[in-house]
Simulated assay, not measured.
Amino acid sequence: MRARRLRRRTPRRATAPAGPPRSTGAPSPVGVPAGQTAPVTDLDEAVETAPDTDALDGRARSALDLLIWDAPNIDMTLSTVIGARPTAASRPRFDAIAAWFVEAAGDPGAPDAPEVEACVFANIPPVVGSLQRWVEALRGFGFAVFARPKQQPDDDIDQAMLDHIDVRRHSHRLRRLVVFSGDGRNFAEPLEELARTGTQVTVVAFSEVAGYAIGSDLLEFIDIEDVPGAFAVPLDRVRLDALPPEGAWLRPTRSLRDFVSSYVRRNG
């Protein structure tokens, strides 16, 4: 019997980004065009065409270490923890994150070395601005990017991330999954279910907003600032899980007078 799929919140025919990016000069996989973009694949079709590995004890599928980056969530929570709009100096360095992820996969020449795949999921607003340069930089670092137009304020890509994880757990032996997201509402249950099947699942986010992973007995948690080189300079934050022995002052994020003025306006 095949492994059960991850339970998803939206009862619909699921789709997910197409396969991992090809190495330079590698032939195109069957059904995948050789252009800059790849189609969205149907999850049901991907599951049905995956080999029945139970009889082969999993040997038909390659091992895979997969990284999933929830760009809207990481951007939002970064603003929350530093109390300001992120600047170039305070944004994550994807080159360092790629190096950290690949190093943990082990020696690529080892007989049991896994494939590695890193995917960034992003909502693209109508005014693209500097996002084109950001996307091209990510691709240059070896990340695949799943970009979806943001047409409504509540549009998100959580389901696309869950769908892609589900596709990969059927197309490969998902050895390790690293999810950069503090979104426990959508990820806690599916990630714990996956961990129960034997996949090593690590959540990387900010400790201030990732209680679902910190409190889980099944998930490993790493604060994103603990990833070596993830930020060019230390973030302007005081982590309650890493306070100095002598304590620390937490500055207000707005002036007392400004708060009282807004309070009076709201309450008369």
Rank of each mutant, 00 (worst) to 15 (best):
R5E: 11
A16S: 11
P17L: 03
G19Q: 04
R22I: 08
S23E: 14
L43S: 05
D44G: 13
D44M: 06
A46P: 02
V47Y: 02
E48S: 14
D54H: 10
A60G: 15
L66S: 07
N73Q: 05
I74Y: 06
D75V: 01
S79R: 15
R93E: 10
A96T: 14
I97E: 08
I97K: 05
A99K: 12
F101N: 06
V116E: 07
F121E: 00
V128F: 04
S130D: 15
L131Y: 06
W134Y: 14
V135M: 15
A137G: 08
R139E: 11
G140F: 04
F146S: 11
R148I: 09
K150Y: 01
D154E: 12
D155Y: 03
D156F: 00
D156Y: 01
Q159A: 13
M161I: 14
R168I: 01
L174T: 08
V179N: 02
V179G: 03
D183A: 02
F187A: 00
E193S: 14
T202R: 08
V203E: 01
F206M: 03
A213L: 02
F221N: 06
D223G: 07
P228L: 13
R239L: 11
A242K: 15
P244T: 08
P245T: 06
G247P: 06
V260Y: 12
S261V: 10
S261H: 09
R266G: 12
